[in-house]
Computed example of a mutant assay.
Amino acid sequence: MNDRGPAPILRDATSLAGVLLETLDGCPAYRVLVDRVCRRALDLHESVILALADDDRHRRLLDADAALQGLRGLLGLARDLSVLSDDDYLGFAEQADRVGRQLGGWLRRLAAADTMP
């Protein structure tokens, strides 16, 4: 982190985890799915925090990407089962896409740095 505040990817991953937890909290239907969605969002959040602080950023970013991919699949399932409304799903998918674009950019920068002489 720096004096300008948290990195945009951390801000967005935190926001995504927070709104998912708030929206799905107390949902009695499909408790296992809801728990898994929330756990996956927290896995993503933790991986981003560790990537920002760890020397092994590439591995942490790959962990974050895997968590995000799993979260996207679970969100689609939650929508299909009417655990999430279409509007909630679209909002969460947009946030997940924003995090995904940042992860992709970060991974591309690391890959380019690895190929520099």
Rank of each mutant, 00 (worst) to 15 (best):
D80L: 08
D86A: 05
T115P: 00
G5P: 04
R72K: 12
P117M: 10
A93K: 14
L52V: 03
G100N: 11
V99A: 06
L42M: 12
A17I: 02
L74G: 02
G26N: 08
L10F: 12
A64N: 08
N2M: 07
L90S: 13
I49E: 15
L71M: 07
D87Y: 06
A64Y: 10
G104S: 08
A13W: 06
D114C: 03
R59G: 02
V32I: 06
L10H: 06
L50R: 15
S47A: 15
Q102D: 09
D86N: 06
A41Q: 07
E94N: 10
G91K: 15
L103H: 07
L50D: 13
G105Y: 13
V19H: 09
R57I: 01
T14I: 01
H58A: 11
L90I: 00
R40P: 00
A41N: 07
E22S: 13
A41F: 05
N2C: 02
C38F: 00
L42V: 06
A93Q: 15
A96M: 10
D65G: 03
S15W: 11
L110H: 02
L44R: 08
R31N: 03
P6M: 14
A112R: 12
A113M: 05
L61Q: 09
S85W: 04
A51N: 07
R98I: 01
D43H: 08
D86L: 04
Q69G: 08
W106K: 01
T115D: 14
V48W: 06
A7H: 15
A66Q: 13
L50H: 10
A17Y: 04
D12T: 07
A111I: 00
R72M: 14
D12E: 12
R59N: 05
P8W: 12
R108F: 06
W106T: 13
D43A: 06
T115I: 11
R39Q: 11
G104E: 09
R101F: 09
C27Q: 15
A51K: 08
P28L: 08
R4A: 11
V32R: 12
A111E: 13
G91M: 12
L81N: 04
P117L: 10
T14S: 15
L103A: 06
G5L: 04
W106A: 11
A111H: 09
T14Y: 08
S15N: 13
L75V: 02
R40S: 15
A29D: 12
G91N: 15
D87C: 05
L68K: 11
S85K: 07
R101Q: 13
V37A: 04
Y30R: 09
V48T: 05
Q69R: 13
L62E: 15
I9G: 08
A113I: 00
Q95F: 01
R60W: 08
L81G: 01
D12Q: 14
L74Y: 05
D63V: 00
L61V: 03
R39C: 05
A17F: 03
R59D: 09
A78P: 03
R60A: 06
L21K: 14
D35I: 02
R72T: 12
F92C: 04
G70F: 03
R60T: 01
V83P: 01
G73P: 02
G5M: 06
L10C: 01
R57F: 01
M1S: 14
V99L: 07
E94I: 00
